[in-house]
């Protein structure tokens, strides 16, 4: 019931959450919009979501040119900020806007934990997001930025660090809108 309520709340906020009526027993498909405004703001909306193991996240490019890329050493030696054992993803740059073919990218999340990700062209502009699958646990995504200096990973830019929604807020609300979309 809690998941359904969260889903309904998100829909009321005009965010596309697919399969809201599905039973918790069935995996959902949750959509995150990738946006660039004429004023030059670039963001994921929602910026933070809580989903269940087995759920699929579908990123939809609404405007601009974006990627959804997990913070993981496999992706340009970025700091590991997804659960150990989880498969990192990288959509690379999407070249089409919704609803054209090539405007979406999907990833299925099976390993519980916190997943941080970014947009390749807009990481420096703070276009980052956080997904919590099931229980947050105590994996890499819950650690402070720069938690393993001896690994010599590329750090999360300071400009981006402040744009991750707090994990506690995601757990409390289920869905955390991008401040730009929420008019904050």
């Amino acid at each position: 019931m809690n998941r359904i309520l969260r889903c309904m709340a998100a829909t009321g906020a005009a965010i596309a959450l697919v399969a809201c009526a599905a039973s918790p027993a069935f995996a959902r498909v949750v959509e995150i919009r990738m946006v660039q405004t004429p004023a030059g703001e670039a963001y994921f909306d929602p910026a933070g979501i809580h989903i269940a193991p087995g759920d699929t996240v579908r990123w939809v490019q609404m405007s601009g040119f974006h990627s959804t890329t997990a913070y993981a050493p496999q992706n340009g030696n970025h700091e590991l900020r997804i659960p150990a054992g989880a498969k990192p993803w990288d959509s690379d740059i999407l070249l089409a806007d919704h609803p054209k073919k090539g405007s979406t990218f999907e990833h299925v999340f099976t390993v519980p934990g916190v997943y941080d990700y970014f947009c390749k062209p807009h990481e420096m502009a703070g276009m980052v997001g956080r997904i919590i699958v099931g229980d947050p646990g105590d994996g890499p995504g819950t650690q402070p930025f720069g938690y393993a200096p001896d690994r010599h990973w590329n750090p999360v830019p300071e400009a981006a660090q402040k744009d991750f929604p707090p994990a506690a807020e995601i757990m409390r609300q289920g869905v955390v809108r991008a401040p730009q979309a929420a008019g904050k």
Binding site: Q36, A39, G40, E41, A42, G64, F65, I93, K120, P121, H122, E123, M124, A125, M127
Partner: peptide, 13 residues
């Protein structure tokens, strides 16, 4: 003169 948050090739504001 237009602000851009970044794009492939110039990945910074």
């Amino acid at each position: 003169i237009v602000f851009n948050p970044g794009h492939p090739g110039v990945e910074e504001p």
